[in-house]
């Protein structure tokens, strides 16, 4: 596992939507490197033929019936919203093309 660079930390922060300060970028670059070196120990285990566990208890096929029920009152939906307009959540402008 290669050392993590400041540029990589910056990229991760962008992916994770964290507007880190320069100080934080410096600080985290060092810490993440140490942590990642440490957790990279998992690769020491020879586990070629070992199946991964994504779920600790083997349960499968859990479904509910297709029955519609009313959800929340709109007043309860709106109550938590940082900005609300015209019965909708108001969000800042979206620069993306989509």
């Amino acid at each position: 596992m290669t050392a993590i660079t400041r540029a990589e930390v910056e990229h991760l922060a962008r992916l994770a939507r964290l507007q880190l300060t320069d100080d934080e970028l410096d600080h985290y670059a060092g810490q993440l490197d140490v942590i990642l070196q440490s957790v990279a120990r998992v690769s020491e285990v020879a586990a070629e033929d070992i199946p991964p566990t994504s779920h600790p208890i083997p349960v499968q096929n859990v479904f509910r019936d297709d029955v519609a029920r009313p959800g929340l009152d709109r007043s309860a939906v709106a109550a938590g919203a940082p900005a609300w307009e015209d019965d909708r959540f108001r969000v800042p402008r979206i620069l993306d093309e989509e």
Binding site: R90, V91, P92, I94, D96, E97, E98
Partner: peptide, 9 residues
């Protein structure tokens, strides 16, 4: 979307 001031969801 392009040129909008904000959006509603």
């Amino acid at each position: 979307i392009h040129g909008a001031d904000y959006s509603l969801v």
